[in-house]
Each structure stands twice: as C-alpha cells, then as structure tokens.
Design a protein around this nucleic acid. Sequence first.
RNA 1: GUCCCGAUAGCUCAGCAGGAUAGAGCAACAGUUUCCUAAACUGUAGGUCGGAGGUUCGAAUCCUCUUCGGGACGCCA
Length: 564
Amino acid sequence: MNFKHELAAILYEILGQEMEAKELELLIEKPKNQNHGDLAFPCFTLAKLKRKAPQIIAQELSEKIQSPYFEKVEVVGAYLNVFLNKKLAAENVLAEINSKQGAYGSLNIGNNRNITIDMSSPNIAKPFSMGHLRSTVIGNSIALIAEKCGYQPIRINHIGDWGTQFGKLITAYKLWGDAEKVRQNPIKELLTLYIKFHDEAETNPELIDQGRSWFKRLEDADQEALELWQWFRDESLKEFSRIYELMNVHFDSFAGEAFYNEKMDRIVQLLEEKNLLVESNQAQVVELLEQDLPPCLIKKSDGATLYATRDLAAALYRKENYDFDLSLYVVGNEQSLHFKQLIAVLSKMGYEWAEKMVHIPFGMMLKDGKKMSTRKGKVVLLEEVLDESINMARNNIEEKNPNLVNKDEVAKQVGVGAVMFHDLKNFRMNDIEFSLEEMLRFEGETGPYVQYTYARACSILRKAGYQSGTLPKALDSDWEKEWKVITLLMEFPNTIKRSFEQYDPSQVAKYIIDLGQAFNKYYGEVKILEENLEREARLALVSSVTTVLKEGLRLLGIEAPAEM
RNA sequence: GUCCCGAUAGCUCAGCAGGAUAGAGCAACAGUUUCCUAAACUGUAGGUCGGAGGUUCGAAUCCUCUUCGGGACGCCA
C-alpha cells in the first residue's frame, strides 16, 4: 500500500487540473518530526500558482480530504500534515511481511537480466590487505542488492595476475629468492622480495628495466617465466580463498588479466580497423580529444600491453559472454580517469553498450592520512584484522553468554560482521582512516548492534513459542508505541530501491541501524511477552522486525545468528 | 597547471530530487538489571553546517568564486 500515492491522488481529485498527480506526489514529504504526522504537503508551490496565501490553501485542502487511510489532517502554517490510519497501516505491513518473509522488499527492476560486477580484484603475490576489503565488501553487497531488485548478478574477480609487477617479482626472485622459503610462507616471502626490489631500485634503476624485460618474456610465453608466474599465482589464490570463505564471498569468475592475454590481439586489430590507433612516442594510443580526455595508452613502446588494453578486451568478452544489461566496476576512486577513458574508447569503437558500463568508485583506506602502499610495506593484513575481531567476539560471548552452544560459529559471524559493517555503513566515497579500535567496536552503530537486536528479538519469539507465518486474523492494538517501528518497516522496499539506484549499500546499513534503534527503544519500554490483549499484535511486530533485520544484514553479506 | 573527490558537534559520520526547532554513534557526565540477552535503554552537555557572494517566499542542500585536505593526469595496475 502506498500512502503517498494515495494522498497525491486525493489532492489531485480536489485540485482538478491545477497540477499533475505525479507533480503533487513529488511535493509530498515525510516530516522529520513525528508530531508533524506521517506525510506533509507544503503549499508554497500551489500558493504561487493560485496567487493565494499558502495557509489558506492548506486550510481549504484539509477540510476536503476524506479517506479511510488517513485518520487526521492538521494545518500548521503552510503545511498540511497528514496522519495515517495506524491500524490499517500496521496490519497491512505486518501481513505483507508475514506472507512474503525474506522476499519482502524484493523488486523487479532487473527483469532477470544479467549484471556483471567487477569486484575485489586483488593483485596476486601480494597479501590481501585492508585496501582490498572495500571493493570486495561493497561489490558483494551491490550484487546482493541487485539480485534483490531482480537482476542476475555475475561476480567477477578480475584478479591482477598480469603486468610489469610480475616481471619485477620474477627479477627479485631470481636475484634474491629462496624456493624453500617461498614454499613455506608464500605470500609473506613474495612480499618481502617485492619490497626489496623497490628499495634496491631506488639506487639501481637498471632493475626496473630488468623487470620490464622479464614481463616481456612472460608475454612471449617464455617457459621459465611462465612456470614461476604459475607458481606465484597458485599460492596466492590458495591464501585468498581462505579469506573469501571467511567473509562468505563467492565469485562466478576468476578471469583475471592473464586470462585476456591472448584476447588482446583482437582488440588491437579492431582498433586498427577502425583507424583509432595512432603512434605517439613509439607507443600506440587512442586519442580522446573530443571527449576532453588524455589519450588512452594501448601498447607500450616495446609492444607490451597495458592495463587499459586488458580492460578493453575484458569489457568485450563480458558483453559477448554474459550479454550484460549493466556492467559495474567496483574500483577505487583513483581510477576514475581510467574508466572514463575505457568507456570513451569503447564508444568510439561504436559499441553503444559502453554507456551501460558504470564505474562505482569508493574512497581510500588511509593509514596516517596517507594511502597504504604495499611497496613501502605499509600494509595492514585483512586476515589479521578478521582474526582479531573474531577473537574479540569470542571473548564477549564468554563473558556475556557462556552457555551458548555454537560459540565458534557465532564468534565468526559477529567478528566478521563487525568488520564488514564498518566498511559498509558510510557513503562509499568517503576515505576511511584505518583504525583497529574503531573497526572492532561492537557497540553503537555497528554490525554487532544489529545482530544483537536481532538475537534478542529472536529470543522473545522462542520464549513465546511463536510460529512465523501464523499471523492471527485480528491484531488488537492501537499501535501507538509501535508506530515508529511500523513506519520503518514500511520504508524497507523504498530503501532497497534507492540503495540500488545509487549503488550505495550504506543506505541499507543505515536503515537497519534505524530499525534496530527503534526496536531497542520499544523493547526497553514495553513488556512484549506480557499476557494481555495486545500480546499477539506485539509478537507479530517482533516477528516482522526479525525478518527485516535478517534480510537487511543478508543484503550486506552479513549473517544473523539467532543467539549471541 | 588541469581534472575528480571531500569539508556538518571534541572524534566518526547521517541529512543534500531546496522546506517547519540541523540528527545519530563514540568519547564526557548523571541514571536504568526482583522484569523478554545491559553487545541494550533513559537523560545532560556539545553546532557561525570551511569562507564569501548569488538564485529563492525559504539554502547544510542548487550556482559561482575561494581556502584547506586527498587523489588522478602516457609507457604501474
């Protein structure tokens, strides 16, 4: 039931041709202050149109509005404040949630079409750092929200397993590496070599050339280079999969940059055929003057390919293999120019689907106000943070609920949930200063707060022996104390829609915090289990809250333990 | 130099398709457990919404300029 729509229709009826119903609906707003009712209609715009004082218009309208949906209409200044029929609204939303359960809030914007999501995409042979958390967690949540909106999400881990960095790594390994050490502790050892390479290169620039030449050998399928590369790659993926498992993130494709190695000739050829490739300082570029962008580098002067070349091949491959309706790239803000160029080149090539590609940027994870750099060894390992968080959750359980049966499982859900929620709760463009203390906070606006609220609500339902899906015919309540919670429950579908349209999981995160706060307040002032006439109504409300909190957490990729 | 982001309470952030007294959390202080999990709840205190103009009946929200911070700008990815 859409009350806003209803009000707009009634106003349209009263006003006649004055304004379109759609325009009227856009003017209707939700008052911040609950004393001002549930819907408000400011009459300033009409006042101008009718050349009449807004207060008078509000007064006239208020006298004409009659609807079973609205129990009261007040005039405050130029505002028409409308109060919903609480009983009707409450019973309506509770019935809907009860019948749809987890499917409440699902939409069909996507019409089952494919949406590819380029996410996570770490560079192998480097540790999985906090920096990679963002793309992984934001991408995963957008995939889940897209699915909720009727799309088929295809999660693609475009792993960085190709490029000059591997030439550098091979160079370092050949110079200083020890096979036994690498076998024992692969990522750590490879990272040490990588850092050493950059330290040495500062005084010995010749190393950089060696790195480039090893990469060239890799591209030319040199046996030794390929074997080392394969080895580094396998070891890295083994470590990454452990972390993905911990966060419950899974991929439909691991086609990384190397995958496109033999697909790049075609791109270069296509560019040549379309006369887009020009030589510039021995390199091959596509000029993007009319788009007001710097040229896009396709081939280096030594003939080796670049990031953009591989991304062009990948875009084409994805269109041909997944026939995406939308293609999202959840990649840091610092790569904005790269994606603008990528899309511009594809447009120049005549692919109109280029405009269906969307870069979804996000701010950086900073350390001491600066970018974390693998090269300088300034990294924080995600796995260490997750382990510490799980440990802390475990200690909390020991202290607060020592009789819990599946402590380890719950500690994992809460610990990992805390870290993921922390990354998702704020608008993605904001930079985040890394703070372990902040990340491992379990109180206030945090993942564990929402999980805890959910667990308490579940506990009530258990004690009451409540069976979900058994909504009584008559719910006896005036819904006064429940009203804030009810209005939030009604907002859930709209929140999902906005969250998808803006590719912004933080809207869902904020929503479940709001719902949690409203419910905890209610929990504090009302004895839900008390035996009286309204008990059934209260339990129906609690049941709906659990359904929506759990679904909200799920859309963020976070689990909801029934006890903690 | 050009371009892209950001700036709101001591700290972290909401609010930004313009609207009624600018909201949370953390930290501080004062309370709440004979009662459904206190990872919770209640209350107090805390703000010239970076600055200056402009548009408007009305601006934290839109436009212009400006200051500060971060980032990107051809052979890394």
